[in-house]
Design a protein around this nucleic acid. Structure first.
Length: 800
DNA sequence: ATAGGGTTAG
């Protein structure tokens, strides 16, 4: 650009500055220079002319001062086509298509040229508006402008966005050939890239054949540059054909960073982490500089493979790598690091990265949110959720599922409704969270409603929602519904099988649970450690000692799963319930690690059931050492003494508990009736209809006594007069909830009662009699297990 | 004054 005349005219001391200004290199200083010159010109009343004006506009645009550029542009009486093109390009690059259109439309046709049209076509293409780009392409030809290389590359890059784009690609290919640009590498590159985009469209029936067209074009290109190779390679990666991509990649002479990145990200995406790491190493050895995209992919690989150490090393490498490319400031890199630490359960490191980030997006917030949720720190999760500047479907889903899994079912359901109120259509993942809450709360009614909503929305084939529904039906006491769903689901995975086996096991159908497990094996589904936990629980619930032993051995010997403490605890539970204490002791002795609380809790519970005082006390002592704040130990021990009438010992345990400052979790039971939950505490006086419940219970007890019911006052924990004991026992929360359910639910309907702690032995016996007196089915869930009472019997074995 | 390739969170 020659501007020596103007230089002299403005002011000689600006000569150097203006020369700098006119150099085509854009530096951070350019914007400052532009402002200085501009201000000086205004102050001295000098009219800047043509090329200098355009240069100023260009600099303002490129340094993000769009408003300055526009002001200058508006001041010019007759902006030439170059100035107009610069404005259109600047608006397009900043996502202001409407403003670009305005400048374009305000330009008379006589003034336009091909470059101007090209800029506008590019603007539409950046705006993902393929149709507008094509329309303008046709319009310019009608107006007599011949498309050039630039026109073709722009319009071709836009057709990938249009529904009938395969046709368009072919048509454009013809036009290109006729126009004589059929040998131009940049045009052909664009065409290859367009075919790749088309192949990715879900509307295309045969993506492979479209990729074939792209490949043919690539193979027949007269001159290929690195971009041609890279386009073809990334095309294959995007279309999930890593083998083809790799073959081309290996044949490439000068491998661009982008090609390396595409290969690595492809492997990570496919879960081929070993390959990704190998590639990364090769890239390092080849001397190609990593960039932000390399780091994001390889950190993500570390996160998925739980390679915390390598991830940390790369993090360090990023921090010390020179100031030129600043990957440490790149948002996706930081998001990947955040995910790495989150997945490796390094919450503090994740928080550190999060706090240091100057710019955060939804991804960052969601990643931080899920790391709190996954580690069960719901208070911090709630804080993050509140603070977030915006939320998306995933945010809601993660929070709803997180509350559900951490025992905050009611809050979770509230949030699910709030989500809908705020105009979000819940995805299947959010549904799964809400359904999990219904499972925990025992809200069969809401669960069923959610199920029908899912069907209406067409989500019924969703695995996560389906699996949640199986669990929900199981945990709400309707195993039949769980089974029906399981049988009709079009796709199931190991989680579905696990959920179904668990449902059967929890309801005491141990034999059926084991049969289903065998069926799972026959179908060729690999059991995981959860499957074995579930199966062992089912065996224990149903007293299947031999089967339990067999599966425990098979887990390790056949399926190569090392039993954890939880698996050993299930075995101890199974053996103790069956009264085989010496076998249980042998099992503990064989463990490759020190027995933890889970083991001794199972042991203590077994001792309590069988009245094995000596071993029970030993187990309790271990637990006092390990988890002194756990109320369960004190309760079990004190129950055990109470059952034998050793009241002195009972009060010693209670005193110990007081001295240690341990509080018993208050027992409560609830029942769903008349569209809401009714919660009862022991000796409840808070519920509005409690008087009716007490008088109905009194009536029931008279009938029950006729059939032989005798209150079992061993389950009263305090030493008191026997009639007081009887009163204490008759007001247990589960009895109140059962009576209330019988009063309120429709005639003949099954009463489903839920209790947070384990059911008391007398209540267990009493409810058997109640079921006989009223001739109705009563289901009680205490913790995780179910008791089905019918005709004076209970389905469970070995429970008391 | 204008064009063509890559990345992230459940």
């Amino acid at each position: 650009m020659n501007c020596s005349n103007t230089v002299g005219a403005v002011a000689s001391r600006y000569a150097f500055l203006l020369q700098q200004l006119c150099s085509p290199r854009q530096t951070p200083l350019s914007a400052y220079l532009a402002r200085t010159v501009h201000a000086h010109a205004v102050a001295s009343g000098f009219n800047l002319r043509g090329p200098i004006l355009n240069r100023l506009i260009d600099i303002y645009c490129k340094s993000g001062r769009l408003r300055h550029a526009r002001l200058l542009f508006d001041e010019i009486p007759h902006p030439d086509i170059v100035a107009r093109t610069t404005m259109v390009t600047a608006y397009s690059a900043t996502g202001n298509v409407n403003l670009a259109r305005e400048v374009f439309g305000g330009t008379p046709k006589g003034m336009r040229d091909t470059v101007f049209y090209n800029a506008m076509i590019t603007a539409h293409s950046h705006d993902n508006d393929g149709n507008a780009a094509i329309r303008l392409f046709c319009e310019m030809q009608r107006d007599g402008f011949r498309p050039d290389n630039f026109t073709f590359t722009s319009v071709i890059s836009a057709v990938g966005l249009v529904a009938e784009s395969e046709k368009h690609c072919q048509q454009l290919h013809c036009v290109v050939v006729k126009s004589g640009t059929g040998f131009v590498t940049s045009v052909l590159n664009a065409l290859v890239s367009a075919y790749v985009k088309v192949a990715l469209s879900p509307l295309v029936a045969l993506p492979k054949s479209v990729m074939g067209s792209a490949r043919l074009l690539f193979d027949e290109m007269p001159v290929k540059d690195e971009l041609s190779w890279t386009t073809m390679i990334t095309g294959y990666v995007k279309n999930d054909d890593l083998d083809e991509a790799r073959e081309l990649f290996d044949g490439m002479e000068e491998k661009l960073v982008v090609a390396w990145n595409a290969m690595i990200s492809g492997y990570v995406h496919r879960g081929l982490l070993q390959e990704a790491f190998k590639m990364f190493k090769k890239m390092y050895l080849s001397g190609v500089q990593f960039d932000e995209f390399t780091y994001t992919s390889i950190i993500s690989a570390c996160a998925n493979a739980s390679f915390l150490l390598l991830g940390r090393q790369i993090h360090a490498y990023i921090l010390i790598s020179g100031p030129k490319p600043k990957p440490g400031l790149h948002l996706p890199v930081n998001n990947a690091l955040l995910t790495l630490y989150s997945k490796c359960a390094k919450l503090d490191d994740a928080r550190l990265v999060f706090n240091k980030m100057r710019v955060k997006d939804l991804v960052s917030w969601n990643a931080m949110l899920s790391s709190y949720v996954n580690s069960g720190r719901m208070n911090e999760a709630k804080e993050i959720f509140q603070e977030m500047p915006e939320k998306n479907l995933l945010t809601w889903a993660v929070m709803i599922a997180g509350l559900a899994q951490n025992g905050l079912g009611e809050e979770s359901l509230k949030l699910f409704n709030l989500m809908k109120l705020q105009g979000f259509q819940p995805c299947d993942y959010a549904f799964a969270g809400a359904i999990t809450s219904c499972a925990a709360l025992g809200s069969l009614k809401s669960g069923r409603q959610l199920h029908s909503q899912l069907i209406r929305l067409g989500f019924e084939c969703s695995l996560s929602a389906g699996n949640a529904l199986i669990t929900m039906y199981g945990r709400c006491g309707v195993v039949g519904d769980a089974r029906n769903l399981f049988l009709t689901m079009s796709v199931v995975d190991s989680v579905s099988w696990n959920a179904m086996i668990a449902a059967l096991g929890q309801h005491g159908h141990g034999v059926q649970a084991v049969e289903l497990f065998e069926e799972m094996l026959k179908e060729g589904i690999l059991p995981d450690r959860i499957t074995f936990l579930t199966v062992l629980s089912a065996c224990s619930h149903a007293g299947l000692v031999e089967e339990g032993h067999r599966y425990f051995d098979a887990m390790h010997d056949i399926y190569g799963i090392t039993p954890g403490e939880d698996h050993y605890a299930r075995m101890v539970d199974l053996l103790c319930r069956a009264g085989k204490f010496s076998d249980a002791n042998d099992m503990i002795g064989k463990m490759p690690f020190q027995p933890g609380p889970q083991i001794w809790e199972a042991f203590l519970a077994g001792c309590r059931n069988h009245g094995n005082m000596e071993l029970g006390i030993q187990a309790a002592e271990r637990l006092f050492e390990m988890i002194p704040q756990n109320d369960g130990t004190y309760i079990l021990l004190s129950n055990m003494y109470a059952a034998k009438g050793l009241w002195d010992n009972v009060s010693r345990v209670r005193k110990l508990m007081r001295d240690q400052g341990v509080k018993k979790e208050p027992a409560c039971s609830w029942v769903e009736a008349e569209n809401k939950f009714h919660v009862f505490m022991v000796d409840d006086t808070a519920h509005p209809e409690v008087n009716a419940v007490y008088s109905y219970l009194k009536q029931l007890v008279l009938e029950m006594r006729k059939l032989g019911y005798v209150p079992d006052t061993r389950f009263v924990l305090h030493d008191m007069e026997s009639d007081q004991k009887e009163h204490a026992i008759s007001t247990h929360s589960e009895k109140l909830a059962v009576a209330f359910g019988l009063l309120k639910l429709p005639r003949g309907a099954t009463v489903r009662v839920f209790k947070n702690l384990r059911i008391c032995g007398d209540c267990h016996n009493a409810i058997k009699y109640i079921s006989k007196v009223v001739g109705r089915e009563i289901v009680v869930r205490d913790g995780k297990r179910f008791h089905h009472f019918k005709d004076g019997e209970c389905s469970c074995r070995n429970y008391w």
